[in-house]
Nucleic acid binder design. Structure first.
Length: 714
DNA sequence: GCTCCTTGGGTTTTT
DNA sequence: CCCAAGGAGC
């Protein structure tokens, strides 16, 4: 029954026995504090848990679920717990298994909004005009579709930002504004979702594209990420019987990270909530950092209005950080000018070290400081894995990376470009999609001439014209190309070869066994391996083929794990589109490099929060009046970003700010972040290293030795 | 149909 | 300054 079976296998391989997991909690053994107990003990009706950073919210959720099952006798399959990422959902599975045992944990519905949506739409497929099978478009696909439409319909010029157009449409969709209403909205200041954004040329373009976009999805039998939430919500709203049946299914809903939900997600929760209103939401408005992509902090601020009679519990005891770190965090967030649920984190861990405020000359010196400190920390017995370097933009990470490498300090980049986003993996996946989803024109066009087989733009145009003229799907024209005189012989041969390869693969995949093998054969047959390894050549070509092999490996793993259900290529593709099977985490001992956004939910003994300067944090895009759409609320989101970063630290926190940085090739002076104002009075201490100078011979020797040791170790 | 070069842009990102 | 994406040229 559980949506995410992923955690099963991992747990079997011996992850967390319950005792170990309990021993790990720092909240004074297994006892819950008073507020936590209230949240766990709450019976029927809506519950809002305002969980400050490090206040043990996951414990509350898991203990609450366990209590519902064990004391109230709620059946596990009638509990739906929604997280934001697959990783969080899997982690929840582990924790639940530790609490109530694997058999019971596996019966729970633990999922993300989006994987719930897929499950829902698969089940309700009959009532959808798109028929039984649908392809899921990720954001890249959506952008690709918008790009095609802009080109095909001749809208705008090429300076147009396609991403901006797609994001307007996405914001509309999430507010249930359909293409017709988007037109009706014209001039309405409420237009694209983000409150007081000024309607501009992009609204006009997006409005024009929107109907084509929706038609395109329908023709391709595709749902984009927004649809995965919006469509279930809409179906539940419009069909009483479907609604009643799903409401009966779930006695209790629990939603984590509620401050990150958007309008459509709230609506889905409302539609799923039964008459008892057994909805428990957990979150922290002070950690709301995804407003820019449509998250509405109002969902948590006004939860009591959405669900009358809500019981509110505040978790303010922090079990993570030492007092000075919390004092700084409280001070930073108290400066917020936005409406919030007032909260103050209380320290339960000892007093500890003052937060270190580090002025440096420039980002290079910043990187050097970080690397040198980490080396000293290692000497003092800290493990690299206990240390993180956090920053506003990925660009900043580059410099740190270089410096750590020079010092032989092992690191891992958190987030960053995922393996499934790599071009070669997307190409390979497009082949699989073309096999399964004959209507997925986007994927078909992607592979039509990859690897190069003599099919150029002209040929594609001809086929497209033919499809339009005859009113047939684009895919069907492949079979007709042979008879078309205006298509060059080479292109005809190429298309025939592609068609046969896809057809042969389709037969093998339909059998439902040996999926991975069939995929590998397909990739080899159409020449992906040859293209990467030979044509493109070099070590990078081999590595890219390895990435493709990773996809094959993921398919193989899926095939083996999902023995209960019948494995299907379609299900696999839906999973990878939703980043289900992310890269196996290298749990080796490494320093974490991460953006502030990606760091939410993580914690470390030592945190370096670099680039605390105006223009970076807050980012200039949110403060520069010249930049369209910069609203005052965006600056407050930057403040919360800093707050999130600060509260990642358990024992030691460095806040670094450079005096100058280079911007567009120019060296520009910068000032410390406004958010640091008022932190000087005893909360923090100034910290500089005295070796902030050319390296000494001994240090060079040290670095060389560290590097050598690493090279030998790998 | 493919390759090199110019041009423009440079925040965060999971699903 | 550095990178990615589209256009002109081969």
């Amino acid at each position: 029954m559980a949506l995410e079976r992923g955690h099963r296998g991992e747990r079997r391989s011996g992850a967390h026995p319950g005792a170990a997991s309990r021993a790990r909690t720092r909240s004074g053994g297994v006892r819950l504090n008073a507020a936590q107990r209230v949240a766990v003990a709450h019976g029927q009706g809506p519950l809002l848990v305002l969980a400050g950073a490090g206040s043990g919210k996951t414990r509350v959720i898991t203990h609450r679920i366990a209590r519902l099952i064990e004391q109230d006798g709620v059946r596990p399959e009638s509990i739906l717990a929604v997280s934001f990422t697959n990783k969080a959902a899997a982690e929840m599975g582990h924790r639940m298994a530790a609490l109530v045992g694997a058999e019971i944990a596996d019966r729970l519905w633990l999922s993300t909004f989006h994987s719930f949506g897929v499950r829902f739409l698969n089940e309700e497929a009959k009532s959808l005009r798109r028929g039984g099978r649908f392809v899921v478009f990720d954001q890249g696909d959506s952008i690709g579709l918008v790009r095609d439409i802009l080109r095909r319909e001749g809208i705008g010029d090429r300076s147009l930002d396609v991403v901006a157009v797609q994001s307007r449409i996405s914001l509309w969709k999430n507010r249930f504004v359909d293409p017709a209403s988007a037109h009706a909205d014209e001039g309405d200041s409420e237009s694209p979702g983000q409150g007081d954004a000024i309607p501009d040329e992009y609204d006009a373009v997006a409005r024009e594209v929107y109907p084509f976009y929706e038609a395109g999805l329908a023709a391709m039998r595709a749902f984009d990420f927004d649809d995965l939430v919006v469509q279930p919500a809409r179906i539940l709203r419009e069909r009483k019987r479907v609604r009643e049946s799903w409401r009966q299914r779930f006695r209790h809903l629990l939603i984590d990270e509620f401050q990150d939900t958007n309008h459509a997600q709230l609506e889905l929760v409302r539609m799923l909530a039964n008459d008892l209103g057994n909805v428990c939401v957990v979150g922290d408005d002070d950690q709301s950092i995804y407003g820019w992509r449509g998250a509405d902090v109002g969902n948590i601020l006004d939860f009591e209005r959405h669900f009358p009679g809500t019981k509110v519990v505040k978790l303010e005891d922090n079990y993570r950080s030492h007092a000075p770190i919390l004092a700084v965090a409280n001070r930073v967030i108290a400066g917020s000018r936005q409406r919030r649920h007032p909260k103050t984190l209380r320290a339960t861990r000892g007093p500890g070290e003052a937060v270190r405020l580090c002025p440096v000359e420039d980002p290079t010196a910043e990187a050097k400081l970080v690397a040198r400190e980490i080396r000293d920390l290692e000497k003092a017995g800290h493990k690299p894995a206990d240390v993180a370097v956090l920053y506003r933009s990925n660009l900043q990470g580059r410099l740190i990376e270089e410096e750590l490498r020079a010092h032989g300090i092992p690191y891992r980049l958190y987030g960053g470009t995922q393996i499934f986003d790599r071009k070669e993996v997307k190409d390979a996946a497009a082949y699989l999609r073309s096999v399964v989803y004959s209507h997925d024109e986007l994927s078909l066009r992607r592979i039509l001439n990859y690897p190069p087989r003599g099919v150029g733009d002209t040929t594609v145009d001809r086929l497209e014209q033919l499809a339009t003229a005859r009113g047939i799907p684009f895919a069907r024209t492949l079979a007709l190309a042979d008879g078309m005189a205006d298509i060059p012989a080479q292109a005809r041969r190429g298309l025939a070869a592609l068609r046969q390869a896809l057809e042969a693969a389709r037969k093998r995949f339909r059998a439902g066994t040996g999926l991975a093998l069939a995929a590998r054969d397909l990739f080899t047959q159409v020449g992906i391996e040859r293209d990467l390894v030979e044509t493109q050549g070099g070590p990078s070509g081999a590595r890219r083929w390895q990435n493709v092999c990773f996809l094959i490996g993921a398919l193989e793993r899926y095939e083996r794990s999902e023995v209960a259900d019948k494995p299907s290529l379609g299900a696999f593709l839906q999973r990878i589109t939703m980043r289900f099977d992310e890269e196996e985490e290298e749990s080796r001992n490494r320093v974490t490099l991460s953006t502030l956004h990606a760091a939410k939910g993580l914690e470390f003994d030592v945190v370096f929060l670099i680039g605390c300067v105006e223009g970076i944090l807050p980012h200039s895009r949110t403060t520069d009046p010249k930049v369209t759409e910069a609203a005052p609320t965006d600056v407050e989101e930057e403040r919360r970003l800093l707050y999130v970063g600060i509260t990642r630290a358990r024992e030691r926190l460095y806040l670094t700010h450079a005096r100058q940085r280079s911007f567009r090739g120019r060296t520009t002076p910068v000032t410390p972040s406004r958010f640091l104002d008022g932190l000087t009075d005893g909360l923090v201490e100034q910290y500089t290293r005295d070796d902030d100078a050319p390296m000494e011979t001994a240090e060079v020797a040290d670095m060389a030795a560290a590097l050598l040791a690493r090279l030998n170790g790998e």
